[in-house]
Amino acid sequence: MKVSNKMNLPLDGLNLESLMETLFYREEFLSIASHELKTPLTSIKLQTQVFRRNSKKEKNTSYSKEKVDRLVDQIDIQSTRLIKIIDDMLDISRIRTGQLVMTKTKFNLSEVVEELLPAQISSKIESNIFINGDRERIIQAMSVILNNAARYGRGLPIKVRLVQRKTKIIFSVQDQGYGISPEDQKRIFQRFQRAVPASEVSGIGLGLFIANEIVESHNGKIIVKSEIGQGSTFKVNFKREESL
């Protein structure tokens, strides 16, 4: 559907179709954000209300230490989940205003990746690969890709690699999960874009957008190869600097 620009607004390069699309995704985003924020809050609020209801009673039950520990742990975990979502939202607003600043230092990327990996993951990490970059931000970008492999990997084993070539450093994560169709492979790097129904795997669709932004700020590139039903490989390529 192409619609002419009857109002003569300065819409160079824009059309109604893409505006409608933006609006649609904004609506969709609100709906997803509502679910993603309210689910951890539901858990937190229920835990605290359970405590309060109990302490209001004249003859209150004393919960076992295990039970209390568990409830408190859950509140903590759910709060962390909320903080993570808020941090992502803050990051996209930083990106929009050009305030996502990279503080670069030389560090051992191999050690960082080793530390990031859960024990049971099969990996091939070449040691002593150095990079000049923002350590925390690079960890953040790699975590997005690793977590996605776990979340969309249907519980099947994933493979992680970190290798160095003449001109580049390659970090790759391969899963055997749902896979991503060719059309979706382009879309998922944009803000709020998701390729799974919100009810299947929860998420707000900001991870790859932020990861891509971080990688590009290091003159790197994220490449995805995937086939529906077979799995996906996300590769992060960094240029190898001679001096390192």
Binding site: T39, S43, L46, Q47, R53, Q74
Partner: peptide, 9 residues
Amino acid sequence: DVREVMSFA
């Protein structure tokens, strides 16, 4: 978590 605390309550 939600399921567990609902049951617990």
